[in-house]
Design a protein around this nucleic acid. Structure first.
Lengths: 219, 219
DNA sequence: AATCTATTCTATTATTTTATTGAATAGTAG
DNA sequence: CTACTATTCAATAAAATAATAGAATAGATT
């Protein structure tokens, strides 16, 4: 009787995962939650939607078991269920970046528009740190830095960079990073740094990309 | 002007990929195409849908650049665009298998129903081959074997197994594999083999899982 | 107990997706 | 050229999804 429903039933279940990730805002939510836990209210501002809509999308992610919730006082904090969820979204992004001409056009246009000359990846980072003295700068909001950051990084949120720029040493190349390739905080930071004649470069990857890579290396 | 549309536009594009994979039949199609190229007609039989519906789903996959087409005579053959697509679907499956209780229930029930006692994974395979003499048996249709198979495997499609069972050596443990964990051909094969007193075990993984693992190892 | 706050739920409307059917198309073979 | 085949397209109806606004809820604070 249960002869060949196996495939149907399992694919049905699996499609709940892909379906949950099939909406752009939900992809964005998972990417955000890869950084740290957020309240619904915070998330709604980040993704620029009403609280009610944000909540709806979070329900979908929760029903697919991609995120979990935890109440803390008045707030309900959403967090990613597992690093494997971040890994899946990363795989989607890499597939898109490597194979989708439209995405490449969007990013190329953006870089041209922002006069971004040089960016480096995590793979380049090690090589660069051997050639010259570098300082790794985390420009995300401080609570994200505290929830986890790339080893050796120093925290100055981009919002405070102008007034705290004196804290930075001269004579080192500053590598600024934020949430990842779709986050513009490091773009902003590099612009500020270069205006003050600091040698600064943007790291394409963010904290979660580094973390996932660390885990891979330890296997 | 293009100040902060970057994220929106890219997530929009990325969601085309996840959206294409958000339907159970389309997941199944991609899994099938991981084995070899198929015509629309063949695929429609495999996934048990009308040719028109199958074609529609294939258009969706094609629009998301997950598959490509090539005409050969009267037929149009669909193939997977890239191994990274198979890798993505594998990641979805692994996430589902590891974290979704419902999927585990479905599979446990299925195994109980079929009296399946022992299955092994690719990781177990090497260890087992050192302990005892084994024969790796590919029970998929022969054209799939010819399109690519696990190194050292011998082909006897499950449909021919009963009459060709004499070709198999006695005294070796037979490890039967097919398209992967959701394919029942190896289940069937093991049942036939055990009925004839051959020591036989089912390999959970299939050809594509092996191939992706090989690629990983070579990096 | 009453109030306040963050989140979720409900109802509604507009939009998108899906399966089905039958017609149209592109290319093959006679 | 004609008939044939595999595939795609087009039209339809049913179902699912999404955004919105406002009501309801659960827990914290007073």
């Amino acid at each position: 009787m249960a002869t060949s429903n196996l495939k149907e039933e399992v694919y049905q279940e699996l499609s709940r995962v892909t379906h949950a990730l099939s909406h752009p805002k939900r992809l964005e939510l998972v990417d955000l939650l890869s950084q740290k836990a957020f309240s619904v209210d915070e998330l709604s501002h980040e993704i620029n939607m009403t609280v009610a809509s944000t909540s709806q999308h979070l329900q979908v992610l929760k029903a697919a078991r991609l995120v979990t919730t935890q109440r803390e006082g008045n707030f309900i904090f959403y967090r990613i269920a597992d690093d494997s969820v971040a890994r899946l979204v990363l795989a989607v992004r890499e597939l898109g970046f490597s194979r989708n001409a439209e995405i490449n056009r969007i990013i190329t246009d953006f870089r041209a528009d922002k006069n971004i000359l040089e960016t480096i990846t995590l793979d380049d980072l090690l090589a660069k740190s051997k050639k010259e003295k570098i300082l790794l700068l985390d420009v995300r909001p401080e609570d994200e830095y505290q929830a986890g950051h790339i080893e050796g990084a120093v925290s100055i949120p981009v919002s405070q960079l102008k007034k705290r720029i004196g804290e930075l040493p001269k004579g080192k190349t500053i590598i600024a990073y934020c949430r990842g390739p779709l986050c513009v905080m490091s773009v902003e930071a590099v612009k500020i740094l270069q205006a003050k004649k600091y040698p600064a470069v943007q790291l394409e990857d963010g904290y979660m990309e580094w973390k996932l890579k660390q885990e891979e290396l330890s296997h």
